[in-house]
Design a protein around this nucleic acid. Structure first.
Lengths: 152, 152
DNA sequence: TATACTAGTTAAGTAGCTAAACTATTTAGC
DNA sequence: GCTAAATAGTTTAGCTACTTAACTAGTATA
């Protein structure tokens, strides 16, 4: 084995360790912030927030939501029921493929999502505002690498 | 407002967007991999895996685990009960502060954690092995930035 | 045109979470 | 030193979110 390979392998292991040291607690903290905003002010759960967010992003089917969240379709179906009951989303029709039931945010769901989203964004901004331009670029670049590496 | 401030603000918003686009699905995928390994081969849940992992890293009290996972102490306490029943961890004594009950992996817990950890590491490695040294460095650097930005 | 597959739902059961009330111990204020 | 407050952890009851299995309905395949 060459020296170059050893260095690469060390870098790779270091990146994996770094990921595991960093991402779970950071993600838990950010989720904690969303939970506080969403449950205290708007009476929705973090999971419901995620579903609204994905629907707005264009993931409008139960199957797509299940895929991105890596949980069962039935779990999504049940969560969707609750959001429909609350008038935050609605089920549409797809005449091309009638098995598919596209989901759509209602006006009320759209506003609620905006409100939670904006508060979380302000909190994240307050944390990140002291970072340098260089650091922000590194973060953005890293996100692109992670996306392409772990995309389905 | 100067041009520099506009550029910085755009970078900041871009980094926040990138985070939200990337981290939740990537983390769900990796958690999905751990779930498959842990439940199919070793009959423990992802949450139990996380607790074992944190204990090994040195977070040995119920309160520390609750803090890092951003859930209640009682939830941790219950999860710990199950892991103790299964013989994967044990409760020790702290004579300096008898309120504190340090947790420790048993030999069996240690081996189980190694096994799950190693399989996940191999999977992540297979995904990341095609990244360049430059990209791996960007990832590692980004992890450090995230840690310092969102650390408690 | 049967059959295999895909999209989504329903139902029953389980895991994991919370809030509140509790015990036990330590720290702080007078 | 002694009371009051704070901290560490547990227990309980109840709820939310998940799973698997069985189901309906629609589409693609051979």
């Amino acid at each position: 084995m060459t020296t170059t390979e050893n260095i690469s392998e060390a870098l790779l292991q270091g990146a994996i360790d770094g990921f595991w040291t960093t991402v779970p607690p950071v993600w838990n903290r950010i989720k904690g912030n969303v939970r506080a905003i969403a449950t205290e002010n708007y009476d929705i759960s973090v999971e419901q927030f995620h579903i609204l967010r994905h629907i707005r992003k264009g993931l409008t089917s139960v199957s797509e939501l299940a895929e991105v969240k890596q949980i069962s379709r039935s779990a999504i179906s049940q969560a969707v029921d609750i959001l429909v009951d609350r008038g935050l989303i609605c089920r549409r029709q797809n005449t091309k493929d009638r098995r598919n039931i596209p989901l759509e945010l209602t006006e009320s769901g759209d506003k609620l999502l905006d409100a939670v989203w904006e508060k979380n964004r302000a909190w994240m901004r307050s944390r990140m505002v002291s970072l340098t331009a260089q650091e922000l670029e590194t973060l953005t670049c890293a996100m692109e690498i992670l996306s392409k590496t772990f995309a389905e």
